[in-house]
Nucleic acid binder design. Sequence first.
DNA 1: GGCACAATGTACGCTAGCGTACCGACTACG
DNA 2: CGTAGTCGGTACGCTAGCGTACATTGTGCC
Lengths: 230, 230
Amino acid sequence: MLLAALPAADYERVRPQLEPVALDLGRAIYESGGQQVYVYFPITSIISLLYVMLDGSSAEIAVVGNEGLVGISLFMGGETTPSRAVVQSAGNCYRLRSSVLKAEFVKGGEMQHLLLRYTQALITQIAQTAVCNRHHSVEQQLCRWLLLSLDRLSSNKISMTQELIANMLGVRREGVTEAAGRLHAAGLIEYSRGTITVTDRPRLEAKVCECYAVVKREYDRLLPSVAATA
Amino acid sequence: MLLAALPAADYERVRPQLEPVALDLGRAIYESGGQQVYVYFPITSIISLLYVMLDGSSAEIAVVGNEGLVGISLFMGGETTPSRAVVQSAGNCYRLRSSVLKAEFVKGGEMQHLLLRYTQALITQIAQTAVCNRHHSVEQQLCRWLLLSLDRLSSNKISMTQELIANMLGVRREGVTEAAGRLHAAGLIEYSRGTITVTDRPRLEAKVCECYAVVKREYDRLLPSVAATA
DNA sequence: GGCACAATGTACGCTAGCGTACCGACTACG
DNA sequence: CGTAGTCGGTACGCTAGCGTACATTGTGCC
């Protein structure tokens, strides 16, 4: 968990205020432009940040797992963002009242540094999503998505239908089916009705575009202590 | 200029340290992963943040004009980013020693708030670039790019070859030529060898995808005082 | 067991954009 | 004033991904 990377003194100050919460698959914890009463620190869950267009189609902007938090606009000063946060993988998380986090943030110090470094890592992830969307094939993007998700889970199994993955990536469901079929044929993954299991991660990493590595490198660089606990 | 939105007391403190600098077209003021000795506040210039891939192709991540600054990773704590900053439109800017900005930032207060709100607006721009890259046509993206650039200039004329625009957008030069040809045929723009003039901005705004409006709304919301001076 | 529905597989025509190639026109500079 | 080089226009075949439609196969529930 992100805050666990703090010096004990800082961590202990907010710890009593952290409420464990279970998150069900598909739940929207933030709506675009909505009030943000809590910030969320995923533990075993994964949250997708996505933008939903006027016509209903969507595109994922970033993924947040136990290395981060959902709700950066709070301390960034905007209070809200034009994107939605959806639970991509069920699990638990801590939530913290926005006011508490904000109060801690303005004190400066390690807490602020940590939150800002995380935000910068997130910016890199978003930027690289833009690059990947521009230049890479659906198959490569699926590889990236699988690896980013895997890094945020302890297991090598992801519970998610192809339909939902397609929504995340902003592509057709059939496109995901075909890409997944090819990865399966190549022996990299197994899957069936709502779960995907990565069976050969090294070869998946060999197949993914550079975008994945760029993002991972930045997370490791900016949040070494968090990466270590992942 | 972004800092002009500060209360006079804060502004006056850094003002003597601001050095005016002329920026030539095409100059790279930051390299991916490089040291950042100065942060830049564009006045009449425009800077593109872009990611250059291993194979040399590139994609623009965001545009910065007089509403913002280049070098956020400084106060975000990362010191550097995996992207490059290139002068997209020649002009002048102020530069400020990184150490000075950092010292001001850690004091908290209005300066910090302003920089963070700007950063959040930038995040929205990057996120929307990702969305636009995923879902919209080259023509729509060209419209978005023209409008974003125009907002950051006082004129309605942009000095830039189609080749360079293509690099920014991460598409083929021919794609830009065709899209520009269609916009010209529709009477929205004029152009010749290295300059594009928007002659009918209202109709250009009618043609652009929602991405432009989303970004503009966030800038106006988060930086009202800056938008007013633009 | 069987029914309904959700998840996945497959097929087909269509279009945007790519890669490539080449031409024409403008411009700067000798 | 001519020439080299830059910039823009056009064309052509190719492919990835889209939209659409429909078939198949699990899965949970009555």
